[in-house]
Amino acid sequence: QVALSRTQVCGILREELFQGDAFHQSDTHIFIIMGASGDLAKKKIYPTIWWLFRDGLLPENTFIVGYARSRLTVADIRKQSEPFFKATPEEKLKLEDFFARNSYVAGQYDDAASYQRLNSHMNALHLGSQANRLFYLALPPTVYEAVTKNIHESCMSQIGWNRIIVEKPFGRDLQSSDRLSNHISSLFREDQIYRIDHYLGKEMVQNLMVLRFANRIFGPIWNRDNIACVILTFKEPFGTEGRGGYFDEFGIIRDVMQNHLLQMLCLVAMEKPASTNSDDVRDEKVKVLKCISEVQANNVVLGQYVGNPDGEGEATKGYLDDPTVPRGSTTATFAAVVLYVENERWDGVPFILRCGKALNERKAEVRLQFHDVAGDIFHQQCKRNELVIRVQPNEAVYTKMMTKKPGMFFNPEESELDLTYGNRYKNVKLPDAYERLILDVFCGSQMHFVRSDELREAWRIFTPLLHQIELEKPKPIPYIYGSRGPTEADELMKRVGFQYEGTYKWVNPHKL
């Protein structure tokens, strides 16, 4: 086992960053958080920038500027975001240094004079007029057009580079997404736009490419001749908990499936790229999406959770019991969808996408189930092999396979070949997804960000279904809070070829 401390991990990262040409360590950078008073800024962006600063992973002359409508001070920003920093008493001095680099400007999102004030403020910072500028839009999409237009007109660096990070949702359907994309691309070049999907920053999602293309053993079996089906799962054990009003506007397909799960599907299904260059990788992902037809209604199961009468606390409440959810809402909190990649490698292999709230566990994984062994000599005792990439929690890679049961006879039983990170790298604290992705933006690497043509294809696949749901308002199937979801989803999976045995229990190697 390799035991690495946080300091050692960050030392390795620093070495990698400083050796590259793309990370300008000594240049002045300004990180501007648009929507600095909001939840995302408070819980994710400010803490992430602090962790990067604490670990010495930001360029040395980096300033952080918050911008929002609320009249706040840096002290206010500190008060609301610091509880999420997880700072230790030993880091007190470092924390003071961090907040000394912070400033805040209040202004409207659609007022040109406010942006001119913001620009004057940035120019007044040390070497601010020639600094590289990175704008993070932690804002609702309704203000994107006004904000990007004003940034472009008043706040661009004339000497350094300018980059803009856009948070999902990128529209509600193909038409609104196209409108937003066309607007942003009329102001910024594609190499300046970073559409963030934080799932692409997760260690195991990034590991998929290495697993596939750096190991000879997987190449020959990664196709329709050997793989019976692919299941991509995202499960949350909690409901909307008072935030249903926002969720109800989008629903589970827009929230998770059309982005996170579809991105994971691309990494499983794509061909080997010409290189690890950002556009070479994204070219292959677009090719996969172009091979997927629009979702067919007979390959869809929609569910909505109801309270568990035997549960406790939140578990007793259904989705419609959330006071922020519109009365009688038919918005799905669970969806199972089957897609097919219609190309030579994957023809006929079902890709089953499942996601839901208020389920029995927290889990995100990719599961490849292989065909049955031909010419069975073990009297149907063999179960199908599976390769599982567990994204969260407890990152893991393992192969479910058959071995001989101890004893006199040739009785096979299920076991696993474990390729888990935790076994080799004991207690290594890896940077989280937002840390990686923000560092990628500083480096100018777009590999783990969504390109406009990729986004367009993703919406093309799901828009007809979303429009049909909005028009017909089908009643989702009720499922109990804390269950596996509607049984109809299991029946759909069985119908397209997935075999669920229920006889195997994964042993978490992190707890051995």
Rank of each mutant, 00 (worst) to 15 (best):
T403L: 12
A332T: 05
R495Q: 12
E472L: 14
D432G: 12
L368C: 08
L430E: 06
A396P: 02
Q304F: 05
D490A: 08
D490E: 08
I477H: 14
L430R: 14
P309M: 13
D440F: 02
K505E: 14
D310L: 14
L465D: 05
G313L: 12
Y479P: 01
Y305G: 00
V496H: 14
P393L: 04
H379R: 11
M264R: 04
S275Y: 03
L368Y: 06
Y479C: 02
F498C: 13
I477D: 13
L261W: 04
L339F: 09
L265F: 12
R327W: 12
V496E: 14
P464A: 10
T316A: 14
L387C: 06
K400T: 04
L368R: 04
M270R: 00
V366E: 01
Q499A: 15
K287F: 06
V341S: 03
E488N: 09
A269S: 12
N385V: 01
D322A: 03
N394E: 15
K400N: 03
F409S: 15
E472I: 09
P478L: 07
Q381P: 14
H379F: 11
R282W: 03
N394F: 10
V373K: 07
N299L: 11
S445D: 14
N343S: 14
W506P: 05
K404H: 01
R282P: 02
D490T: 11
C291A: 14
Y481M: 11
V256W: 02
P309L: 13
P393E: 07
D322V: 06
V325L: 07
H260D: 03
P431F: 08
R282Q: 00
V441R: 03
Q381S: 13
E416W: 04
K272E: 12
D321K: 08
I292S: 06
V337H: 07
M408Q: 09
N259Q: 05
D310V: 11
K494C: 15
N308I: 09
Y319F: 05
P309H: 09
E416P: 02
E395T: 07
D310R: 13
K287S: 10
F351H: 02
R345C: 10
Q304D: 00
A396E: 00
A269W: 01
L492I: 15
E454W: 03
Q296W: 11
G422V: 13
V338S: 12
P412C: 11
R390F: 04
M270T: 07
P326K: 06
L465I: 15
E284R: 07
H448M: 07
Q392G: 14
F442M: 08
H260G: 01
W346S: 04
L359S: 06
K272Q: 10
T420H: 11
Q296I: 11
R384G: 07
T399L: 11
S278Y: 11
D347F: 09
G348T: 06
D372A: 08
G307N: 12
G482Q: 08
V373R: 05
A335I: 05
T463C: 06
Y421Q: 01
A335E: 00
N427D: 12
L387H: 05
I352N: 00
C291E: 13
I377T: 11
L302N: 05
P476S: 07
Y425E: 05
